[in-house]
C-alpha cells in the first residue's frame, strides 16, 4: 500500500502543498461527506429539534409557544392510556420477536438438514421469504380482507368445524382478539429475516462437530442443545435485538390494520404518536412521546452494539 503511494507521488507530485496533494489528502473525507451531511441534516438535527419541541406547549399552533419544561412528559405519564400503550408495545414487541425466532429457527433447521437436495433447499427458501417482499400496505389490506368476519379465514375455520359461522370471529374488531391478530400478521410478514439469518448461521456450523457428537453417541436433542444453540447464539441475539428495535417502532402495519382500535386495544407508541401529531395536532405532547420512543430505541441499540462487539 505505502509502496504504491510512494510510486505515485514520485511520478506526479511536485510540491508539498500542491492542489493535487491537498485533493488526495482530503479525498477520503470528501467521499464520506454526502453520507454524513445527509444524516446530519436529516437525522441528527431533527432529533435535536423534536427534543426542543417536546419542552413546549402548543408548538406550531401559536406564534410564540410557551416553554413548559417537562409538563408534556408529566401529562403523558398521567394519562390512563399511556399504561395501555406501553403494555401493548411491550406485548407486541415481545411476542413478535419470540415467534419470529421460533418460526425462523424451526424453518431454518428444516432447510439446513443434510437430507434435503440443495436445489429443493433453494426453491423452498425462495418460497418462504416471499412474505418479506410485500409492501406493508398490501400486507395490511390482504389480511384485513382475509380476517373480515365473513372472510376466508373464518370460512375455512367453519368448514373445518372449528367455528360457527352464525357467530363469526371479528378478528380485528374485538378488543381481546385484535392484538393477537396483529401479532399474527406481523409474524407472517417478518419471519423471513430471522429465517435467512438463522439459515446462514446453521449452514456455517462445521459438520465435524456433529460427526464428533455422533461418535460419542449423542442424540438429536443433545446435539441441538450442546452444539447448534451455542454455535448460533450470537446470531440469535443480534436477530432478536434488531427485531426488537424494528417491532418497537412499528407504525404502518398496526395503523393500517386496526388504527390502534378497537378501544385502544392495539395502540402502540408509534401509532399513538401519530395520532397525537396529526389527529389532535398536539405537537408538544407528541414530541415528548417521540423522545420516549427514541430513548427506548437507544437502550436497545446499546445492547445491540455491545452484542456486536463480542
Amino acid at each position: 500500500m505505502s509502496n504504491v503511494k510512494a510510486t505515485v507521488s514520485t511520478v506526479k507530485t511536485p510540491g508539498k502543498w500542491s492542489t493535487y496533494r491537498m485533493f488526495g489528502r482530503s479525498l477520503p473525507y470528501l467521499l464520506v461527506l454526502p453520507t454524513l451531511l445527509t444524516l446530519g441534516i436529516l437525522v441528527v438535527y431533527p432529533i435535536g429539534y423534536v427534543i426542543y419541541i417536546s419542552f413546549h406547549e402548543n408548538y406550531w399552533i401559536v406564534r410564540e409557544p410557551e416553554m413548559v419544561q417537562l409538563d408534556n412528559y408529566r401529562w403523558l405519564i398521567e394519562q390512563k392510556i399511556f399504561t395501555t400503550i406501553l403494555k401493548n408495545t411491550f406485548i407486541f414487541t415481545g411476542a413478535s420477536v419470540f415467534f419470529h425466532l421460533i418460526v425462523g429457527l424451526a424453518l431454518a433447521m428444516l432447510l439446513s438438514s443434510e437430507v434435503i437436495h440443495p436445489r429443493a433447499r433453494n426453491v423452498f427458501r425462495g418460497l418462504l421469504i416471499v412474505p418479506w417482499l410485500f409492501t406493508t400496505v398490501v400486507v395490511a389490506t390482504v389480511w384485513r380482507l382475509m380476517l373480515y368476519p365473513g372472510g376466508v379465514v373464518n370460512g375455512l375455520l367453519s368448514q373445518l368445524g372449528l367455528m360457527d359461522m352464525a357467530q363469526p370471529l371479528n378478528w380485528l374488531g374485538e378488543p381481546g382478539l385484535a392484538l393477537p391478530a396483529v401479532i399474527l400478521i406481523n409474524v407472517w410478514a417478518g419471519y423471513p429475516f430471522s429465517l435467512l439469518m438463522m439459515l446462514a448461521a446453521l449452514l456455517s456450523v462445521p459438520q465435524s462437530l456433529y460427526e464428533a457428537a455422533d461418535v460419542d453417541g449423542a442424540n438429536g436433542i443433545q446435539k441441538f442443545i450442546k452444539i447448534t444453540i451455542p454455535m448460533i447464539k450470537p446470531v440469535i441475539a443480534s436477530v432478536a435485538l434488531l427485531d426488537a428495535i424494528w417491532s418497537f417502532r412499528l407504525f404502518d402495519l398496526v395503523f393500517l390494520t386496526t388504527g390502534g382500535g378497537p378501544l385502544n386495544a392495539t395502540h402502540v407508541l408509534a401509532t399513538y404518536t401519530y395520532r397525537l401529531s396529526f389527529e389532535s395536532f398536539e405537537f408538544g405532547r407528541a414530541s415528548a412521546l417521540s423522545v420516549m420512543l427514541l430513548l427506548f430505541t437507544m437502550v436497545l441499540t446499546i445492547f445491540y452494539f455491545r452484542n456486536q462487539e463480542v
Binding site: 441528527v44 418497537f248 401529531s277 405537537f283 420512543l293 430505541t297
Partner: peptide
C-alpha cells in the same frame, strides 16, 4: 466512530422524526 454513527442512525424510529420533518 463514523461507522457506529451510521449504524446508529439506522435504528432511529421514523415516526419519532415525523413532527420535525413536517414542520421543516
Amino acid at each position: 466512530m463514523m461507522q457506529l454513527f451510521i449504524i446508529g442512525t439506522q435504528m432511529v424510529p421514523p415516526v419519532s422524526l415525523i413532527i420535525p420533518y413536517f414542520i421543516l
